[in-house]
Amino acid sequence: MFDFTCQKNALHERVILVTGAGDGIGRQAALSYAEHGATVILLGKTVAKLEAVYDEITNAGYPQPAIIPLDLKGATRQNYLDMADTIEQQFGRLDGVLHNASILTVLSPFDEIEEDSFDDIMQVNVKAPFIMTQALLPLLRATKNSSVIFTSSGVGRKGRAFWGGYAISKFATEGMMETLADEVSGTNVRVNSINPGATATQMRSRAYPGEDAKTLKTPLEIMPVYLYLMSDDSIETNGQALNAQK
């Protein structure tokens, strides 16, 4: 799977929503999905970053993407319902969702985690993908084969000291994935999670400021698993907690 090669037009005519699409893994996933034929919906809070990714996709000659500016920290259920309506009206379908957006905040001892910080992490990393997926499920169920990917972490599979709220949010993400995957088992919807592993991103650099980013995998290098889960090759894969790196 780490060496999975996606067919050139494997995602032709697919419509895929990527959250946190402005930089890092989300940006690269959007580019990779577009490269393989998908129409990508770029969701993020910073319009300038989304526009830059939009330009990269169109300049490369890939299908024209769309932009949805949305700050998950303040988004409401109605925002997600309206978004689902807009996607249906503009594209008539939705074939995949990559829940990539996450926040880390401050690493600290458990008894020093601030309530506001914890609330922000749970809002963006857990509640936002939960409510968003609820709103998008009718569209996902209406297409032939659809894929939902949640983004996990190594600290969401084994707790680690000082990772507090972030680790807790990723354990919750894994539980959400497994619960939904079991409910949709045997249907046209499949649900899985990916642990990206140590990757050269801004979030990683904030967590490990002294680390040499050149020693890490780039977002492009971990794309095989992301492409696998969005392609028809993974139709039988459901409820799996996958790793993007060996």
Rank of each mutant, 00 (worst) to 15 (best):
S205T: 07
G175E: 09
E174D: 11
L229G: 05
L140G: 04
L227N: 10
A207C: 01
Y228T: 10
F118I: 12
E112N: 13
S117T: 00
E174N: 15
E211M: 11
D119E: 15
D116W: 02
K144E: 12
A167P: 04
T143A: 12
P109Y: 06
P138W: 04
E236H: 01
K144I: 14
L136C: 04
V126I: 10
L180H: 12
V184G: 03
Y226R: 03
L227W: 12
G165N: 00
T151Y: 01
S234Y: 08
A135K: 10
M223K: 04
N195S: 10
L229V: 01
S108I: 02
P209N: 04
L98N: 11
A128G: 04
V148K: 05
Q240G: 03
E114N: 13
T151W: 06
G156L: 07
K158A: 12
H99R: 11
G154K: 12
P224C: 06
A142T: 06
A128H: 09
T201F: 01
L227D: 09
P219Q: 08
P219I: 05
L180V: 05
S153D: 02
E174M: 11
N188R: 10
A213D: 09
R160Y: 15
P109N: 15
F110G: 01
T151N: 04
F130A: 15
K217I: 00
N192I: 06
E183V: 13
S152W: 05
I131N: 10
A200P: 01
I149C: 14
F110N: 01
A198Y: 14
N195K: 12
L140R: 04
D233F: 15
